[in-house]
Amino acid sequence: MSRRLLDDEDPDRLYTVTGGRSRTDAIALDLVTLIVSESEPAPGMQSEHVRILRMCRRPVAVVEISAELAMPVSVVKILLADLLDTGRVSARHPVSGAAGSSLPSGDFLRKVLVGLHNL
């Protein structure tokens, strides 16, 4: 049980963070799409964009950004769409090596196995 006081809250409502948008259909982003900054934050930028740009100097998955900003993935996707549109970040989409079927290829899975064994 943890107490959450007003201290943890901010007066910003989510719709003011997204300018009233609740979804973006322009860019498909998976939970595990990796985001990488392509530029430094500029003055006057909204603070979430600044934080994303700082956070993503090394690749960070969408779901991690969401956890870090304490914001829903949908909202993070909207924020990311803005940054992707202006080229400030780039996205590395997941590739499962699946060729036509839902199952990844054997080669791909062998690599995964090697990685797991090396843990």
């Binding site: 990796l34 090394r58 991690e64 499962s96």
Partner: peptide, 14 residues
């Protein structure tokens, strides 16, 4: 809580 990924990380699996 957060250690950065390698800069070469490009493929997220689930």
């Amino acid at each position: 809580t957060r250690t950065p990924l390698r800069a070469t990380a490009s493929n997220g699996l689930k």
